[in-house]
Amino acid sequence: MADETNTKKFLYINRKAPYGTVYALESLEVVLIGAAFEQDVSVAFVDDGVFQLMSGQDTAGIGMKNFSKTYRALGDYEVRKLYVERESLAERGLVSDDLMAITYEDENEDYAEKPSIHFVDRSEMTKLISEHDVILSF
């Protein structure tokens, strides 16, 4: 099936906080390039990966580029399925309001703004993994 249509379901799993290592940034770079390939793309945030979506990131004091705004542009790249694991948030003392609001414009509904972030339980995250063809971990 996947071979015939050449469309596969890609799942990016992000498990690391930004800035301490390059993985968050270089994962985002793959997601952006990958968007041009018209695959079915989902991006998951598990463990410390949830910190990638924190609002109010300010990197002025560490001399590194703040790339957090790029997540908000993902909708323009047709990347509209961001999954955040609820347990990962809770374990870190975070709530959904701590994260950036990320939306996309739904062209089928008069460009209404819709949330790209879906909060899922660990069991739903587990199911997501088992439903994808290609898993890229960063």
Partner: peptide, 11 residues
């Protein structure tokens, strides 16, 4: 080469 080669490898 480009990152697209990674995506292509996935496909």
């Amino acid at each position: 080469s480009g990152l697209g080669q990674l995506i292509e490898a996935g496909i």
